[in-house]
Amino acid sequence: MNKKIDKAEYEKRINRITDLFKDMIVQADRQSLARCPYKNRLDQCTAKFCCQNKRKPRAEGELSICACKDGLDYRTAWESDPEAYAHVRQQLKEQRSSQAS
């Protein structure tokens, strides 16, 4: 059975965590000026929405590759309407398959 926690001692830990996280938020803001925040350390895209910078994953089951060049404004590539994006992709796919046949 664990002992009860002293409130003042707990608050000291919360303050420490808050300080750590505040520094991280500042860094996240700084990083986001030049690098898409959805891009992980492996240059994969973690976004749940469509983005024009998404490229085929390196292997099946992996996340898409982010082709964004850091330093450029990545936000213009974000699709505001995922359904429209999916529709256009479907149209392109159909066009390509009809051209191929």
């Binding site: 860094q27 959805y38 891009k39 350390r41």
Partner: peptide, 12 residues
Amino acid sequence: KFRDNFIFVPEV
């Protein structure tokens, strides 16, 4: 690691 750009927001 985050401050020194070894990891990014998704990892954090």
